[in-house]
Amino acid sequence: MALIITIPGLVRLAIVSDPDELRRVNDAAVVARPLSGRGGLFNRSVAAKLAVFRTPDGDIWPAFRDRHDPLRAEHQKDLEGVLSHIEPLLQRIAPEIAELSNYVGGGRLRRSLGVVVQQAVGRLFRPGYVASEESYEAARTLQAWLAAWPLRAWWIRYSGALQAALDRIEAVSERDMACAHATALAMENIVKSIELMRELALQGGNLAKIDPKDAMLRTLRAPAHVVREARDGDFVDLIRLRSRTLVLLAVETAHQQRASDPGSAFFAGSWNECPAHGLVPALLSKVWQVAKDQAQGGA
């Protein structure tokens, strides 16, 4: 059952964590991706945070495009087509996979994990993508911006760090907005997954015992929350959404309840299905497999 919090003037919020409810709310006609900022100060602050994810000429980042936006559907289809060629793509990022596998197997990285993941993700979109500590720092800034409390958010914006981070991410992505989204925001889930894999691998010889698919299922992480807004009031099953309710879809919590289904982390089958829904699990499996092979080879 969803948790509804309403404090007039401050917040109008619904937190949905049940997997079935989450899917139905996500698909409901009154629930939209763009946030108006109405409903209370909290709603306004969240909307203001997402509003920055636009290019200088106003183009919207793909993950924030509305359901009925024809460009969203078109981009999603195109990108899914590109990302469905899993083997060649994994081949393209074999050096990064090797680095990640080494890390999972207990080795040390010469650069930070985030940089490696960012480069791997970036090269899926643009073969020439080069990540650096600065580009990863930019991604961290954007992630911090989304999670920050008001004072910190204010500082991130007014210190210029936010704009600098957006500029850097867009520059290294060569204005490819899907790439920008993946290398700034989505990649952090892969970083978490790799960290979990390393922990898993280092416990009692799991690397040898657990097969890649199982390891992937245990470590795959979804975004903690995805936000939506109920533009008008309506009931979705038993959940009463008042108009301008900020809907927090607790995707990771829901995914943990359906951990055997990797699709639940990617809204598989929904209008907003992540185009990388096949690629990310394959990438994680591959990392585990290579780590396993390296361990066996070393032994």
Binding site: P34, D57, D69, P70, R72
Partner: peptide, 8 residues
């Protein structure tokens, strides 16, 4: 031609 920022 539609500008990309028009959304839906």
């Amino acid at each position: 031609p539609r500008e990309p920022w028009l959304g839906a």
